[in-house]
Amino acid sequence: MLQKGLNGFQIKLLALIFMTIDHIHFAFQGVYEVPLAFNIIGRIAAPIFIFMVTEGMRYTRNREKYMLRLWIGSLIMNIGNAIMNAYFPLKSGGIIINNIFSTLFIICLFIYGFEKVVSSLKAKQYYKVLGFSLLTLLPFISSALIFAITNTGFDHLYMIYLFKFIMTAFPSILFTEGGYVLILLGLGFYLFGRSKIKLGVFYLISSAVYFFLSVDYSSVSTLLASDIQWLMILALPFLLLYNREKGRSMKYFFYLYYPLHIYGLVTLSYFLGR
Rank of each mutant, 00 (worst) to 15 (best):
A46D: 05
W71Q: 04
N85T: 07
R69N: 14
I44D: 02
K91L: 08
I44E: 02
F49S: 11
L75A: 06
I79T: 00
G73K: 01
I41R: 05
M77P: 04
A86H: 13
T60D: 09
E64K: 15
M57V: 02
R58C: 04
S74T: 01
I40T: 07
F38N: 13
N78L: 06
L36F: 03
M84I: 07
L68C: 05
V53M: 15
L70K: 11
R63D: 07
P47F: 11
I83S: 06
R43M: 03
R58E: 04
R63S: 12
T54I: 12
G93V: 05
M57S: 03
R43E: 01
I72K: 07
L75I: 12
R58P: 03
G42R: 00
I76E: 05
E55A: 10
I72C: 06
R69E: 11
A46P: 00
N39T: 13
E33S: 08
N81M: 07
M84S: 03
V34K: 00
Y87A: 05
T54M: 10
L68M: 11
R58A: 11
M67E: 14
N39S: 15
K91F: 08
L70V: 14
V53Y: 03
R43P: 03
P35Y: 15
T54A: 09
G42M: 04
A37L: 14
I72T: 10
A82L: 03
N62P: 01
A82M: 00
G42V: 07
I50W: 10
F38H: 10
I41T: 14
M84T: 00
P89L: 09
A82P: 04
N39G: 11
V31G: 00
K65H: 12
G93H: 07
P89Q: 12
G93R: 01
E55M: 13
F49R: 12
